[in-house]
Every structure is written in C-alpha cells, then in structure tokens.
Design a protein around this nucleic acid. Structure first.
Lengths: 235, 235
DNA sequence: GGAGAAATTAACCCGTTGGATAAATACTGT
DNA sequence: ACAGTATTTATCCAACGGGTTAATTTCTCC
C-alpha cells in the first residue's frame, strides 16, 4: 500500500487542512445545496475524516456559513481592483459589466451558493457579522461613475447606483444561473462560446444605450454571415 | 373530537386529493428545495397520508417534476393572454415587463422552483416531455413586437427576442429571487412597497430607453415630493 | 345487499446521515 | 526523552427519511 507515503504528504497540516475542507465544502454545497450536501462527501473530497470538519470548522451550518463568507470575500476583493475611476464613464460601465460577467463565468459555484442562500431567505447570511461589514464601497464607486457621466454629458440621466448594479448583476446572473432551464425551454445551448459572446454584447448594448441614449452598438442581433457577427449596427 | 366531521369533508375525493397534494408539494419544494423537502410534511399539509403521495403521484422525484410542470404550465398559459399584438410597440414592451414583474411577485414559489431546478442543472426538466412542447409561441409574439417597433421607427434596432426576454426576466427575477441576500448586503429592505415601485420604474425605463433611444422617463428616480431623496434627476 | 375495485390508513423496514465518543498518533517545548 | 497538547482516526448510534406491505374503509355497479 502506498498509503503510508501518501499520508505523509500532508500529515499534520492544520492550515492546509482547513483550506482543503473549505474548498471541498464549497464544491459540495454549490453542487447539492445545503440540505443535499453530504458531510461525508466533503470529508472524503478534502482527503480528511468526518470528525475533522467538526474539529476545524464546526458543524454543517457553520461550515456552510464559512464557505459563504469566503465567497463574498473573494468577489468583493476582486471588485476593489476594478478602479473605474480612471476610465471615462461609458467605458467604466462596460468594464463593470464585463467584469461581472466574467467573474460569474469563472466562478459558477458563487452563483450556486447565492441561489442556495436565497432559497433559505438569507437565514444564514443574516447571522454573519463579517459579511455585513464588507458593504463594499462598491456602490460609491458606481455612484461616482454615474455622476461623472452625467456631468460630462455622456449619460442622459442619473441612475440610482444600487438599481444599476442590481440590473447589471441580474442580466448576467439570470442568464448563467438559469441557463440550464432556459436552454431546455428555448431549445438552444446558451453556454456555447457564440451564445456567450452574443449575450455579453447584448447586455453591454442594452445598458449603454439606456444610459447614453446612443443606440450605437446597441444590440447586435443583425446576425452577419457566418462569423459570430453578433456585432452591433449603428442605427 | 371533531375529527369524524372533518374527515367527512373530503373523504374519497381523488381529484381533489391530487390537487391538494400538488399544492402542498409546491409549497414544500419551493420552501425547502428538492433535497430539503420532506415527504411527510407534504402529506401532512395536504391533509393526507404519506402513502397517498405514492398512490396518486409517484415517488418524490415524480412529485417534484409534476409540480415543476404545473408551474410552467401556469405561467405559459397566462402569458398567452397578453396579446401584445394590439398595442403599439413601446406600450407592448412595458406591458410585458409589468406582467413578468407582477407574475413573479404573485408567484414567489415559481421563482424558488426555478432556482431549485437550476441548481440541479435542469436534470428533471430534461426528462419532461410536456414542458418541451410548451415552447410557447411567446418568443414569436415578442419577435413580432420588435419587428413592428423597428418598422414604425419606435425602436432603433432589432433585438433578438430571446435575448430581450431573458433580459426582462433577468431584471425581474434576480431582484426578487435574490432580494434576501441583496437586502442584507445593501442594508435596505428591497421588498417594501416603495422599493418595488422604484424597481419597476427603473426596469421599464432601462429597457425602453435602450430600445427607443428616448431616455424620456428613463429612470424615474425623479421621485415625487417629500419622499426620501435618493431621487434621480433628469439631466 | 354484496362482490369487487378504488381510495385511504396504519405500521413497519432499513439504509442513510449528522453528530458524538474515545482512543491513537504526531508534534511541541523543556 | 518525556509530559502535554494539537491533530487525526476508527467506530458507534440515535434519529430520520423515503419507500413498502398489508389491512381497512368507501364507493360502484349489478
């Protein structure tokens, strides 16, 4: 048995163990939801023992909350790196949409976790002390962009930054988190490369057109020849 | 015990029983998800016996699928009554948004069910033969509206009806289905009357502005008199 | 009014699951 | 090298949950 050798690899490594547990838990919770998640599977996936979860993190609920907090922590910290301040307003909005879209694409477990937590009506999140304090300065970042856009004349109207953010997140989130049922309903694969490119173009066009009033590059549906066209068309 | 009397009320009523079971199951599944739902609770809520579920519908999965199909059936049939054909395009879009928004508000279990099913990557829905055939002529309805809008000059650009529908649904869906976590994050109650009114106005403004290019009535944040600032300002 | 089918109930079965107990093993400082 | 602590493992179990078996009641139609 190579067991001995393997075991050696991470014997007595509390930090690493905790991380592996959280990672495995993230996978499990996002794949099966809170009730569907199996503690033993998490343990197995983490190369650990069930008892370890309780030792290092706590019971199932605490484990779940830890995963959730970690997920929020991650996106908030990436958001902080966006520095929309130095872009001209329309470009800043475009970048915000692209970031959100790509983040959701890169982190599908994040979407699942949010869905799971919302099905529970945020019961667990409400208990979190950490998350509340994260209240990212993100909203202010957006508010500033909007204000600058209005001042410069790029935007025709001042939008509530929270509404705008929810709209952008919603456009991205719904498409991705519901792609499974939508694909069945509409009979198209919404996750192939072409479809995703089109979606991004559509969203950027929609939001920018609404803000600037220029339907330039609005919605690209005027499909071109064979290429993914998807491009817009100035009207 | 009034038990005897009560029991009399719906003794031997297969149709009614099936309906009560499905209704109870809808509640349970939307409240707890598939894995979290408890067959016994459904039975109790339906005023039935656990065995009855298996007798009338089948096992837990079949029950779940039946609920899901019922939910889709309901929204599709209501959608058919929209007759957007007789409205001028911008008005038709406004009505579509309002319908979607109100339907989601009136049927929160529908949102939960969709979330649940998407967490399962539509595993069950794919097995449904019924749902696929429902592929509502809804998309065509929207396509027609868009085409008319372009022809009349109301809309500046032709949008893919599926993208448009997903955008509208997404704007409504995300706000409502994620209101629990969003409320925590942003520290506002997103479900009070005022917030909901603002949201509807925002969405209508956003979509219509994008389509027509008229930012008129874009984002209505130009709230009235005494209400708490946060208001917009037409620029 | 009674035979047979349909509907309903009560009781049980048995694998699973979250969690707990206690023992073993590795590491630390002295 | 040894006492004490931190980490890990091997088992156990009581509760629960989905599903089944078999008996009971109610209806229907003759």
């Amino acid at each position: 048995m190579a067991k001995a050798k393997q075991a050696q690899k991470w014997q007595r490594d509390p930090e690493g163990m905790r991380l592996r547990i959280l990672e495995a838990a993230k996978q499990e919770f996002s794949a099966h939801g809170l009730a569907g998640a199996r503690v033993d599977r998490i343990a197995a996936k983490a190369g650990a023992n069930k008892r370890m979860l309780y030792y290092h993190v706590g019971n199932k609920d605490e484990l779940y909350l830890a995963v959730l907090e970690g997920a929020y922590d991650k996106i908030r910290s990436e958001e902080r790196g966006l520095d929309l301040e130095h872009l001209d307003p329309p470009e800043a909005i475009r970048r915000l949409i692209e970031f959100t879209w790509n983040y959701f694409l890169r982190n599908p477990e994040f979407l699942s976790l949010l869905q799971t937590e919302n099905l529970a009506r945020a019961k667990h999140l409400k208990k979190s002390t950490k998350v509340k304090s994260m209240h990212s300065p993100f909203v202010e970042m957006i508010r500033t962009v909007v204000r600058r856009g209005v001042d410069s004349g790029d935007f025709q109207v001042a939008v509530d930054p929270v509404q705008l953010y929810i709209s952008i997140a919603g456009l991205c989130f719904f498409y991705l988190s519901n792609s499974a049922t939508l694909s069945v309903i509409f009979g198209r694969d919404l996750l192939d490369k072409k479809a995703k490119d089109e979606r991004l173009a559509h969203m950027v066009g929609l939001v920018l057109a609404a803000l600037t009033g220029q339907s330039v590059a609005l919605i690209e549906i005027a499909k071109a020849p064979k290429s993914r066209a998807a491009v817009a068309q100035t009207v």
